[in-house]
Design a protein around this nucleic acid. Structure first.
Lengths: 205, 205
DNA sequence: GTCCATATAAACTGGTTGGTTCAGTTTGGG
DNA sequence: CCCAAACTGAACCAACCAGTTTATATGGAC
């Protein structure tokens, strides 16, 4: 499942190549990154690089998948399914916002969005290893809380999407278009608290 | 204000160039579009193109600004500030969703997001001529409705952002990562109706 | 008719790119 | 100690690109 990466040879310097690729891709984007730069950053010859990966695309896919799965899994550990919404929603909101605002999350997102038409499997891979997992986890939690009578919700999937979107209010558009690059605790609190208040107004018991 | 485009000469074939540029940029993105292609599509020689625009960036800025202002203005005309939320919110939601889903809106968005680090003024220009205007208009409406006692809201700006975000639930992530490319009326209705229900649960009188 | 700004096609500059090739060096297991 | 597999560095290729230049043509004003 996690390794659909056909045609990718493993070997001694595999991780070296992957790390160099991550560094340069994150710095320069997909088109912007040159394979020569990556090989140099990885401390590896271009020939070696091409002996591991058949082309630039597959190399990038490997980087994106690895990073995304890593970040998403980490974020999901913070959810304690047995706690009530008043405890869990702030946790979800904050860690979700943290991921959205992180340098890594932002850059992968940028690259995926940019390349999504000419490179559709990339967008899908990113979606599956990131947003989809998070969405599934939130949905599951909402369902569990509803079963316990802590929430009243008929369309759990939509509720999960709504909560995630609410957490991006104001901050995310400003970030994505480069209006602001960092946000104060107060700004984040305003958004997360607002998201929870709106969510609970609709779905609270 | 709307024409920071210094150094852009107007003239007979100005619109021709602009149209060709729009076509190719929308098809191939910023990096992907070659100036030769644009000149060919515009039915103009490369020398002529460069006599109007000093470089590729400025040409793209002009295209993006023009398109974005056009789309945003059109969308804003649909808001009748004097009507109650039960009338206006569906209008806003639908036309907002329409813009988000439109080929043009989506492509400009993609390009802006992709190029935002290496080309920051583009992101800012897009934000100002699009999202910012829409956000301002929604905020104004919410304020007006609140003044009439039709809504109860303390942070109008945040409420506006929340409504816009709510309208993107589910649909937008799937679109942006290429999971789905078109949506049924039912799918859109589910999201817009859900957005309104959640919004009104929090802010309704 | 001639002048002048504007337009043209095409060649050219100087550069970058992804990907290949290959002669030779390093590495590690048996 | 030896050999095969892995790795290296550098040259190489064909394609593509933004932007400039040149020599030529058009067409309206006087």
């Amino acid at each position: 499942m996690t390794a659909p990466a056909a045609k990718v040879r493993r070997g001694r310097k595999f991780d070296q190549v992957l790390n160099g690729a991550r560094e340069i891709f994150m710095r320069d984007g997909f088109e912007g990154a040159s394979v020569d730069d990556i090989a140099r950053a990885a401390g590896v010859s271009k020939a070696t690089l091409y002996s591991y990966f058949p082309d630039k695309k597959l190399l990038f896919m490997e980087v994106a998948n690895t990073q995304c799965a890593l970040q998403a899994d980490e974020a999901l550990h913070t959810i304690d399914m047995s706690q009530p919404p008043s405890i869990v929603l702030p946790q979800i909101g904050n860690s979700f916002l943290g991921f959205i605002l992180s340098d890594m999350g932002q850059r992968i997102f940028r690259i995926c969005v940019a390349e999504a038409d000419r490179f559709p499997e990339l967008g899908r891979a990113f979606y599956n290893s990131g947003p989809k997992k998070v969405h599934g986890a939130i949905t599951d939690y909402i369902q569990a809380a509803a079963d316990r009578g802590e929430l009243r919700v008929s369309d759990c999937a939509l509720a999960a999407d709504q909560f995630a979107e609410l957490c991006k209010s104001d901050i995310w558009p400003r970030l994505v278009f480069g209006i602001s690059t960092s946000f104060t605790k107060a700004e984040k609190a305003r958004v997360v608290d607002g998201a929870i208040a709106t969510f609970m107004a609709r779905y609270g018991v």
